[in-house]
Each structure stands twice: as C-alpha cells, then as structure tokens.
Amino acid sequence: MLELSQVSKRYGDNHALKSVDLAVAVGETVVLIGPSGCGKSTLLRLIVGLLRPDSGTVTFEGQVLTAASLLKTRRRMGYVIQEGGLFPHLTVRGNVSVMARHLQRDAAWIETRLADLAGLVRLPATLMDRYPAELSGGQRQRVSLMRALMLDPDLLLLDEPLGALDPMIRYQLQQELKAIFDELGKTVVMVTHDIAEAAHFGQRLVLMREGQIVQSGSLKALAENPAEPFVEAFITAQLEPMSRLNAVLG
C-alpha cells in the first residue's frame, strides 16, 4: 500500500533522512518512534507530500508520488498534526466538511457523514457550530481526526496527535483512538516519541535515529534482540521512570 525506497532529504547540510526504505501493508499500524530530530516527522511529511524527497521514491497504492499526482492522492490520506491545525475562522462543521464542500459533495451526504464521524470520535453534536477557540485541546484533536476521516481515506497519518494534551486526557484519548483504529481497520502511520504510546498502538515499531531506521519490529522483539546498543538505551531510558515508580509503590 505504501512503500518508501531509498528516500533521502536534507535541509542545507543537515541530513534529515538518509536512504530510508520502508514498506507498510494494508491495514497495518506502524509507529515511527525515536528521539527529537531523528527524522520521523520528516518521513510523515514526505508521505503526505508536504515535502518532496531529494532522491528516492514514495509509492502509494502502486503509484509513485509526483508533484502532479499529489493533489489527488492527498485526498486518499488523512493527516492529523500535534495541535490539530484547525482553521480558526471555521466552525467544527466548516473545518470537517471543507474538502467535501470543495468537491461539491451532496449536502445531505455531508450532514450524515458529519453525524457518523461525531459519533465515532464521541464529539457531542452540540459542538458542531463552535469555533476551535471555543473547544478544549482534546475536543480539537477529535475534530481534527474527523476532518482527516471525512473523505474515508485509505491511509491515516498522525504526527504526535496527542503530544500537546495533558496526561489524563491523553490516556483517555489513547484508549479511544485505538478502538477507532480497530473499528475502521485502516492503514495507519503514526509518529510519537513515547514508547508506551507506541507499544499501545503499534503492531510494528520503527525506531529511527539521525535520519535512518535503526530497527523495526514489535516492542518485544526490540527489547529482546536490540540491533545495536542505541535500541536498548532508548527503551531503557523510557522504561526506567516506570520501574522507579513501581518500586516506590511497592
């Protein structure tokens, strides 16, 4: 469904991605993880076409992405970013339906779809005419997810979708989001820096460092057979606070 082949991207002298290969199968949930600046967000932005690779190709549903084909393929992808990226001058309804209205979809179809999606992400119908400034952070992310799902995309791309939320809301949304993914059965590529979140969502974790993929597999595989000391160090660094917490609580 999605294949990156020898993809490189640099910003000036800084190699953001170095010859990355990655394949994502239909229905798979892949989580890109790694320290800040490892290139995981860049990878996602290359897939949605916000960036163009310096070399290598991105193939989506058997078609190599080009500047010309991007406009169409983007409509088969949903993209959610950390702080939602909602249009502040449009209501919830306006934000979610903006693309459908541009494509002149039937008004009745749009209303039905809006109601279905609001049910799916558990957004109260009373909020449909609110502006983003009138919503909480968690509600904004629900709206952003509705917008991404509006045209029923084949691929869902999420860049730290829960990164800006406080831990309680974040935990709750993690549970709900996972349920939604399971229900929709969509192909998902998600970026996070939190290994617990990655393990919660991902059948497959892709650990990155300095623009390259270090290791790919389940958390268990990564922990038991680290490809290099960095993998072990990265997992330990994130698990250590948990074990300290457990020790205190006895």
Binding site: R74, Y79, G85, V98
Partner: peptide, 24 residues
C-alpha cells in the same frame, strides 16, 4: 500548521487562498 493542514487536505492553491488564507 494551518497552511500545511490545508495543503494536506488536498485543497488546490486557489481554493486554499479563497477558503483559508484570505479569510485569515
């Protein structure tokens, strides 16, 4: 992020200007 969201949605440049950029 707002511009990128509009691009990622697949809005062509002219629609982006009319629907998102000029109102903002």
């Amino acid at each position: 992020p707002i511009i990128e969201s509009a691009v990622a949605l697949g809005l062509p440049p002219n629609a982006r200007l009319r629907v998102v950029e000029l109102p903002l």
